[in-house]
Design a protein around this nucleic acid. Sequence first.
RNA 1: CGGGGCGUAGCGCAGUCCGGUUAGCGCACCUGCUUUGGGAGCAGGGGGCCGCAGGUUCGAAUCCUGCCGCCCCGACCA
Length: 497
Amino acid sequence: MAKAITKRTENYSQWYLDIVKRAGLADHSQVKGCMVIKPTGFAVWENMKDQLDRMFKETGHVNAYFPLFIPKSFLSREAAHVEGFAKECAVVTHHRLMNDPNGGGVVVDPSAKLEEELIVRPTSETIIWDTYRDWINSYRDLPLLINQWANVVRWEMRTRLFMRTAEFLWQEGHTAHATREEAMEESLRMQQVYADFAEQYMAMPVIRGVKTANERFAGADETYTIESLMQDGKALQAGTSHFLGQNFAKAFDVKFLNKENQQEYVWATSWGVSTRLIGGLIMTHSDDDGLVIPPKLAPTQVVIVPIPKPGPEIAEVAEKLMQALRAQGIRVKFDDDEKNRPGFKFAEHELKGIPVRIGIGKRDLEKGQVEIARRDTKEKQFVPIDGAAAFAAQLLDDIQQNLLQKATKFRDDNITRADHFDDFKAIVNATRPDQTESWGGGFISAHWDGTTETELKIKELTKATIRCIPLDNEQEEGRCILTGKPSNQRVLFAKAY
RNA sequence: CGGGGCGUAGCGCAGUCCGGUUAGCGCACCUGCUUUGGGAGCAGGGGGCCGCAGGUUCGAAUCCUGCCGCCCCGACCA
């Protein structure tokens, strides 16, 4: 092992960075806070995107595209919204460069100042709702179910590859409805779509919940979230779906004529997931040997490694195997690069998280078998050549299931109930050398008196915030963990990304 | 926006305190041979405005001044 990556127990943050870089997912760019998503990382995103897009279409949505630039005046129409984003906006002030008269290269041409500055979208509610005003006249125009795949910019102080970058890729759905009920159903429906995607494709278990007022999206009446737990015991908000009420309709004067020939403001939702999901994927499954990703999202699902060199007999068997696998829609590669030796390839493919590796050597051929290794458990076994393709296909399913089970067990094992504030503090401050050097404490299920004041106080004292109020919460009489005031349900606290 | 750290070959670093041959090491790269079932060995080779700009000096990667960039930690946020 010439080039080991940092162990999780030593430095979790560095471990994450090592994985991202060494697995070839992304690099820091020349621009502060931005990243270059490399082909392998982008392939993961494409797989996510393809599946999500399919699910959006199945729920009746269509794609469209709105401008990157938003007139400054739009952003201030909705008071809470501008409050939420004002601090992190990139602003375009000029539209022309010129040669520096002093010979210093190009400079901004001061005569090309924009009359109204443009904001690089941090999210698109404003420009979309300004457009919807023209699109919506009657109840017959509703519901309007639109999604866009785009990049957005939020000028973050502190960034981390995939988890938080100044520019990131995402999808944002923006829908308009005739009734409050319909909009509410839509926001819950999309939250469910996200939860299904996370569990079935990312093998990442999530808790569906609703955000507290304090954690709510700027401009929303209600924010629904899917929350997941990373290996270091910190929570990740993996996706959000917002019930926007009539806030944007009122701010942008979007009305429709109902069946009774009366003007009404429309009801809205918006929902999004981003490249941040890739960060969540990494931190849910990967280990000290490198990236581990679920087969359904892996750019390459099976790699075939010839041992030692790809002689004609080996290549022939590999070719047949590849055909059989491709016939089942499996993404397979034959690593016949003669530059590296098998040992190097084994380590490299594990580092890059390819779920299944098939080794074919001369000895194997004599016995009519191949060696099949799975990335998640590192188990290897010999399988007859004839049954190898079917075995590998089944193994991919097993790995997908195993990853979800393992992550679910980890998540469930790390939801702790606390009834006294001392216990609460002990849980968030606990060190777990068997886990990670910066153990976050996992989820804590505790009673809360429902006030923002108490929530902020707990955050101040422990750094833990309320991640969500689970939707399927059982009602239970209790007393607030901090104030002792009566409460009728537990909420989930955690330190969060 | 505060605190810390780092800019020397594609990557990772040493050298900087205490100025002085031709700036060095590992990995990667190129050529050849031997190898190949868990990160190969030997031999030969290519690659540097030492972050940028000034200054001090006979002489600067090294000292001084200014600037730029990035990373990590904290506050804020998806």
